[in-house]
């Protein structure tokens, strides 16, 4: 039984004490339903996407074409009710194509700022590894600080700015792998994978009669302001000292692992904690458990660990196995 299933079983009727946790449950359930409708048979991926969204992290999809990356990204954008922008990355894409640029207006004899796609609530950077490093780095400031600086002018982005980037792992010719510094800006990397047989059947059935060939969610479930409050609420989910020590120990293990050349950065550690908080919130809890840490470990670590390992799954498994979860001694360290 996976930890997700366990959490589902355990949290299905969780009501101990805290009523504030349940205030946003309706919105979350709506988001969950909308995304599940867009991406059939991938509940666990949807949970991860929601965790990432609530943690204010950015998301990188690394998978084959046609598995629903763009569909899911668009569904997220529509569900949160914000502005959606899409950039199809190619080698000739310029940084200004993303951030925007100052254009000289002949009439007013002044420079006028034309906003790029980053000035949206959800930005889909499709096949980001096809853009040149110069263009990729244009996203650095936007992702990390939610602002862009053009010609000495700083422009704030949306508070709910959320980047979903996709990359195709098989067509490496003419691609520019994302540098580690940029990878660290993403909260997690997800692989959607092929759906199972029943899900594919359901997908085909839902496609019959649909004119545009894609099932999209056109209705906004929540507003950006509501999402922002949700994110603030997630930031207040309690993390006891023992859990933080557990996280730090895991981080140290990644740095001492013999096959990992670049371990977890402190920023990565903070991101991991925030995603685990979001995970706990999605499970209906107001505190983080080691299961939350473990559940989000693979997508969080996979995006930022680099090294000489054959399988990222195995490396993550080794890291988790090498640290004991805090159990009864936590009572003295809460």
């Amino acid at each position: 039984m996976s930890a997700t299933e366990v959490s589902d079983q355990v949290t299905s009727s969780f009501t101990p004490g805290d009523t504030s946790t349940c205030q946003h449950q309706l919105a979350i359930d709506g988001l969950r339903l909308a995304l599940n409708k867009a991406l059939i048979g991938k509940d666990d991926i949807v949970e991860m996407v929601l965790s990432c969204l609530l943690a204010r992290g950015h998301l990188l999809f690394d998978d084959l074409p046609g598995l629903g990356k763009t569909t899911l990204a668009k569904a997220v954008a529509h569900a949160v009710g914000g502005r959606f922008a899409r950039v199809q990355c190619t080698p000739d894409l310029l940084p200004t194509d993303i951030t925007g640029f100052n254009m000289f207006d002949q009439k007013t004899r002044e420079f006028e700022f034309r906003r790029g796609p980053v000035f949206s609530d959800v930005l889909l950077a499709d096949e980001i590894n096809r853009a040149t490093p110069r263009t990729q780095s244009a996203l650095f400031e936007a992702m990390a600080e939610r602002q862009v600086t053009i010609d000495a002018d700083t422009h704030r982005l949306s508070e709910s700015f959320f980047v979903i980037a996709t990359q195709n792992p098989v067509e490496s010719h003419g691609a520019y792998p994302l540098p580690e510094a940029q990878l660290d800006r993403f909260a997690m990397k997800l692989r959607i994978g092929y759906p199972d047989r029943n899900s594919e059947l359901a997908m085909l059935a839902s496609n019959v009669g649909s004119s545009d060939g894609a099932v999209a969610c056109d209705e906004a479930i929540i507003k950006p302001q509501q999402l922002r409050r949700l994110q603030e609420h997630v930031a207040n989910v309690a993390v006891c000292k023992a859990i933080q020590e557990y996280l730090v120990d895991l981080g140290r293990v990644t740095r001492e692992h013999k096959e990992i050349t670049l371990g977890l950065s402190p920023r990565g550690l903070i991101t991991w904690q925030r995603v685990a908080q979001a995970r706990a919130h999605l499970c209906g809890r107001d505190f983080v458990t080691p299961d939350d840490i473990q559940d989000v470990a693979r997508p969080v670590l996979e995006v930022r660990l680099s090294g000489d390992f054959d399988s990222a799954d195995r490396a993550v498994e080794e890291i988790l196995s090498s640290v004991s979860v805090p159990v009864l001694e936590t009572q003295n360290r809460k």
Partner: peptide
């Protein structure tokens, strides 16, 4: 049993005490 797993998590990882009505 489900309740036990929830309450054990609560005991181990939550700072809040268990209220008397539970």
């Amino acid at each position: 049993l489900r309740s036990f797993f929830r309450w054990s998590d609560h005991l181990l990882y939550s700072a809040r005490v268990i209220e008397s009505n539970h």
